[in-house]
Design a protein around this nucleic acid. Structure first.
Lengths: 229, 229
DNA sequence: GCTCCATTTCTTGTATACAAGAACGGTTGA
DNA sequence: TCAACCGTTCTTGTATACAAGAAATGGAGC
């Protein structure tokens, strides 16, 4: 299973491990043994350790001194917190995008939205997942704040696996698209307050949607558990 | 010059280097030579490299493959962007704090505010700097979102040196305290919208304040320049 | 049969050795 | 005098060796 497909030829070690974590090949709690990884990737322990430190900084794994590294367990509570922050950041990006976007931003935003619509109409969930990502990145970019773009992209990336599950919830694609519609309108109308509010609500998990996500998660946990040790 | 004083006995390598960067002992553009650092700290290159990778993940330094690491140059543009994001995050923390704070949060918030007032009255800028930090962390904590707390604390830490300069701007302490007053009131009154708005304005740099900060920065750059190579 | 302790084994943390790319300088030619 | 090219030197990237702490295992005592 692969998540994204850039030029995958010179993929750095860090990204390869990161992918395995994000795709769930290395489930939460999975023990990351240095020598095992080293032999598996055909390198020595040194570059492995460097990659692990970077992943630890990103919060994807947890390094306990002298006790090795494990894939970070993100419990329901922390997951909700992360989505809450994501909602805040996206709302902020939307507000800024509404009053700062350039003509080029406007175009890439509408393009991405149209691509989402096409994917939704064909009912291809995977395609929608991909185009949805493009849509959100277009909003980040339109905020014209490079630091905010970095922060949003980083958190978005970390939430990738859960977002994917989220889309499997019933009717989510149709609802998501309708929300996109309103978001685009708000940004193009330079209505920052509306864009912020709409994006916040678009991301936030609450009520039924939250329960659904949690349910999907626990199912999934059952199927992938005990891969570690 | 030291920034904060935890139990400084078993200070990790990463933090020691980080401190030298944050305090300005290693100014932006400063070349971080591995062997030099290794001999200076009395260790081998390996742990130095680990620390450097972590600092790079945090955005404090920049590692150019095969070309070594340098302290990241944060230009005025990026600095403004970082403060903009900080304002957004603090606003969010304030909004959440207003509707989630516990009795203990309420107490530590008012305590921190009182400490700020005392420091301001004695005119001790350093003391105010320290208590101001405590005040903001009290708000983060009151948001009851551990992930948001982490994010806020990390960015706050990165902006430390610039915040310190900011306080040296004329009348800033008095204005800051007045703004704190209103923020506390909003949070205690459970007025999330007001808390968010007030905190955003409290952090944001614009107009005169921004010019003043830039002026202080360029002065400072002059005094510390060319320490690197 | 269970528990606690000692020994062994395994894993991580650190140091060092080696390889390869980048910066530097000197020489040669116009 | 200046520029380009080649060789040296220095720095980073990787591998390996060694040390020290943690887990695992086996045995002894209760």
């Amino acid at each position: 299973m692969t998540l994204s497909a850039p030029e995958d030829a010179p993929l750095k070690l860090r990204d390869r491990i990161e992918n395995e974590i994000l795709t769930g090949d290395m489930p939460p709690g999975f023990r990351l043994d240095e020598v095992t990884l080293a032999t598996r990737f055909g390198v020595s322990r040194t570059p492995i350790r460097e990659a692990l430190f970077q992943l630890a900084s990103a919060g994807l794994i947890e390094i306990r001194p002298r006790r090795g590294a494990v894939v970070a367990e993100v419990g329901p509570e922390r997951l909700v917190q992360m989505f809450e922050v994501m909602a805040g950041l996206e709302g902020m990006a939307g507000r800024l995008a509404a009053r700062r976007h350039t003509d080029a931003d406007r175009r890439s935003l509408t393009d991405a939205h149209e691509a989402c619509r096409r994917a939704a109409e064909t009912g291809d969930a995977d395609a929608y997942y991909y185009e949805n990502e493009r849509f959100h990145h277009a909003i980040y970019a339109a905020s014209r704040n490079a630091f905010l773009i970095d922060q949003c992209a980083a958190l978005h990336r970390r939430l990738k696996p859960y977002r994917r599950i989220q889309l499997q919830v019933k009717n989510r694609v149709a609802n998501s698209l309708a929300e996109h519609e309103a978001i685009v309108a708000a940004i193009l109308n330079l209505d920052g307050d509306a864009a912020e509010r709409l994006l916040r609500d678009h991301i936030v998990i609450q009520g039924d949607r939250f329960s659904d996500l949690m349910a999907s998660m626990s199912e999934r946990a059952g199927s992938t558990a005990a891969k570690g040790r």
